[in-house]
Amino acid sequence: MKLRLKQRWARLRVWLRPPRTLKVTRIGRTYLVVTFGVGLGALNTGNNLLYLLLGLLLSMVVVSGVLSERCIRDISVRRVGTDAAFAAEPFAFRWAVSRKQGHAFALTFSEADSPLVGGGGVGYLPANVEHVVRADLTAPRRGPVRLTGVRVTTTWPLGLFAKTRVLPLEGLLLVYPRRAYACQEPGDAERGPAGDAGNPRRNDGSGDVTGLRELAEGEDARRIHWLKSASAGKLLRVEREREERRTWVLAVEPGLEGAALERRCEEVAALAHRLLEEGHEVGLNTTDQRLRSGAGSAQEKRILRALAWLGFEGLREEEEEAA
């Protein structure tokens, strides 16, 4: 019986004092100062018009609280997420927002209790319509970011107060390392028998013809298609499939920690991006993982994921177990 009473009391308290935070905006502070001044003036002079004005100012504060509460009540949020989040770079993040009844105005969304900086907003949210809110967020460093909830804030209706509510929503965001400028060259391409692209026999211009293009300065004159060049009146070279593709296996050396590890991850990410963009195949060696060489954006994502988890292996195991 006692327990039930306690539960009811707790429920009543929650109903009376919902978990909201209220912050006074800059204009709101001035508004409150003016209200205080009008109140003092009214009490001091007994001027009824000042009492009337004071009543209006105080009522607007109450109405502001009620309208903002109606605005952020009954909101549900679903994380749509992002395609790729890179550390220290703004990335597009999305939430799908809806509400069952009533209208909401001037809502801003951000991730609660996370290092992600930035937020998105929606001016008007009608009932029973799912609205996708886009935000440019920035993560300060790479690695997994545990998301616990979405913070919804509104300054509706007068912009005097910012009322905030946190909607609990668990999630994980993997932040890839920043693709900084790589100071070092990737080194010599892998020439071992690791796949066709690494086969030196395929670098002799014997691949299938994929097209012709004008010979650039400093390019190998042996690739000139003389017949076509003669008919076109300019030097054209033959482009062959895979003939220029090399294979690199990048490595994050074991034993790196802290800033050195971060720097190396960024460098490897930058190199991998550059090489893959040039059409090469790239693999990755880390202490715990070895990624086979591959090309294309999917391979880049694999490399970035592997780099992002470096140093957070314990958390990764937990996640995989949970999955």
């Binding site: 209006l56 109405v63 502001s64 109606r70």
Partner: peptide, 18 residues
């Protein structure tokens, strides 16, 4: 619409306070 309702309540509240 919601603002009109809010302002109406504010005026009523001001009168009650007064």
């Amino acid at each position: 619409r919601p603002l009109g309702t809010g302002v109406t309540f504010a005026v009523a509240g001001a009168m009650a306070f007064f």
